[in-house]
């Protein structure tokens, strides 16, 4: 299996006349877990969306090798839940691919503690439950690359621990995870590499040990405040 690798050249993300990100030029093979960090409004979400193809660059391009867009999954900061039951939400990615779903839905629900909620109308879930549902749905197709935007923002401590355990398990299976987080402690616990994003500029990934022991100047002040 070819390890996923991405090449970004001169990519710019704009909304109207405002430039949100870029120009970004870099190439890397994502580490098992890569934390994408930076201050609020730095462009982290735009960067994840650019990588996954949800943002089309105004200029430049993004090219993946070893993971097609269908082999990637994305969980946004605010979980998107379909106006259907939890079971139907989980089954959708498989149905769209014409795959059988019952066993995998049950397995996935159990893993994220959603079994008792399978027949609940998903819009009635709490924020934390919706976030677990979004993660379960993203994992159900067995993606090679998983993009997570603040996946634990609404979770209580047991929920957060469970999700972190699952991310470690997934990374061990070979899934490459790119995780937007404000939590320095979380990044220290989980990340193998860190990509720093600030002011719409993306800095090349650094090993997590190096990043936290000797942070680049652009990140030092932020880390000292945390």
């Amino acid at each position: 299996m070819v390890a996923p690798r991405v090449e970004i050249s001169e990519a710019v993300v704009e909304r109207g006349r405002a430039r949100l990100l870029g120009p970004v030029t870099c190439a890397f093979a994502p580490a098992p877990i890569t934390a994408v960090m930076g201050p609020n409004g730095a462009g982290k979400t735009s960067f994840l969306k650019l990588l996954h193809g949800l943002e089309r660059p105004r200029g430049g391009q993004v090219q993946w090798a070893g993971a097609t867009p269908r082999e990637q999954s994305y969980v946004p900061q605010r979980a998107i839940v379909l106006r259907r039951s939890v079971r139907e939400n989980l089954a959708l990615p498989l149905k769209l691919r014409g795959q059988a779903s019952d066993a995998r839905v049950a397995q996935s629900a159990e893993r994220l503690g959603l079994t008792a909620l399978l027949d609940t109308h998903a819009p009635r879930l709490s924020g934390g439950e919706a976030q677990r549902l979004a993660l379960a749905r993203a994992l159900i197709t067995g993606p090679k690359v998983l993009f997570l935007d603040e996946p634990t923002a609404n979770l209580d401590v047991p929920g957060l621990s469970r999700v972190e355990e699952i991310l470690v398990e997934e990374a061990a299976r070979g899934t490459r995870i790119l995780l937007c987080t404000h939590g320095v402690a979380q990044a220290r616990r989980l990340a193998d590499a860190v990509i720093w994003v600030a002011g719409g500029q993306v800095h090349a990934p650094l090993g997590a040990a190096q990043f936290f022991s000797d942070p680049p100047d652009v990140a030092r002040q932020f880390l000292e405040l945390m």
Binding site: K49, L54, P69, Q72, P93, L96
Partner: peptide
């Protein structure tokens, strides 16, 4: 509301419309 999810899942236009 659904765009990012359905695009991310690789739904075809027909599938998006049906959902």
């Amino acid at each position: 509301e659904y765009r990012d999810l359905l695009v991310s899942l690789g739904a075809t236009r027909r599938q998006r419309i049906w959902v």
